[in-house]
């Protein structure tokens, strides 16, 4: 079983568009949306949910108004400003440490499991699609990423599918680390902007750290030729292969608006570029020879 993760560092460079098209080009794969904070892949992948469950992680304090004697000890001890002046828990600030519950002389505070999100296993035209949604202000997206990846591995094993395609989260923090560990290859989608270059470097440093073979493609490449060249120069100095450039193409948004992946608009210049990149990707790696 091989796993390819699509990253970007910076958000909005076209990661999801590339992932959705790769899924179609691969023909058969397990598709994972690991961007659980702002999941978008389900908008362009036709699917039917087969299984889903809540994602429970951590604890949250609850104060019983009946038992509370309004002594205010909890408020003095809370380091997260999570107890309001009128002695209510602010769920957005509570980290679930339990200090208040232990200290409450009236035993008015209890700790409850915190419902942090929901995960789904769906069926699509090219195979199982595992996605999730973190609730607003929920923590532990890294753990949810690990969870969807584990579900994906189980699906791949049960159905004998050789490729797992992962749409990664932006940034370089804990959810990204959870998305890249153990992958066989990483593809960074960047754009020819100063921030695109800056964040691509950080993402590439991360994948180098984990010793994952890394490739780069430049989306909207014709927007700024000089920066596109800077990206290619930096990559080649680091021994990272740039697999190609995708031109700025309004068909990308058109495809999105009609709920399709870019590759389903074969006339689009960006779609043609993506096909070439996929072929390059296959010749550089052994993704389909699992």
């Amino acid at each position: 079983m091989k796993q390819l993760v699509i990253l970007s560092g910076k958000g909005g460079t076209g990661k999801t568009t590339v992932t959705a098209s790769f899924a179609i080009l691969a023909g058969s794969c397990v598709l994972v949306d690991a961007d659980v904070d702002a999941a978008d892949l389900h908008l362009v992948v036709k699917h039917e949910v087969r299984e889903s469950d809540n994602f429970i992680s951590g604890k949250e304090a609850v104060i019983s108004e009946e038992l509370c004697s309004s002594c205010g000890i909890c408020r003095n001890l809370c380091r997260f400003d999570a107890i309001t002046e009128d002695l209510h828990i602010d769920p957005f600030s509570c980290e679930g440490c339990g200090v208040c519950a232990r200290a409450c002389p009236a035993e008015a505070i209890t700790m409850h499991d915190s419902d942090c999100g929901r995960w789904f296993i769906s069926d699509s035209a090219f195979g199982p699609f595992v996605h999730a949604r973190l609730h607003i202000a929920a923590e532990n997206s890294g753990k949810l990423v690990s969870l969807v990846r584990e579900k994906a591995r189980e699906e791949a094993e049960q159905k004998g599918i050789g490729l797992i395609l992962i749409d990664g989260p932006p940034g370089v923090g804990c959810p990204v680390i959870a998305a890249v560990t153990g992958c066989d290859a990483a593809l960074i989608v960047t754009e020819p902007t100063r921030s695109g270059l800056h964040d691509m470097k950080r993402a590439a440093e991360l994948t180098a750290h984990f010793k994952i073979p890394t490739f780069v493609i430049i989306n909207k490449a014709d927007l700024h030729d000089e920066t596109a060249r800077d990206i290619e120069t930096w990559c080649s100095a680091k021994g990272i292969k740039t697999l190609g450039r995708i031109p700025f193409d309004s068909a990308v948004v058109e495809a999105m608006s009609s709920g399709k992946s870019l590759i389903e608009l074969p006339e689009a210049p960006a779609a043609a570029a993506l096909c070439n990149i996929w072929r390059e990707m296959l010749s550089e790696t052994e993704l389909l020879n699992a």
């Binding site: 702002a38 973190l134 202000a137």
Partner: peptide, 13 residues
Amino acid sequence: PPGTSCPVIAAVR
């Protein structure tokens, strides 16, 4: 920061 999780809440609160 982007998103809707803890870091964003901390920033906009």
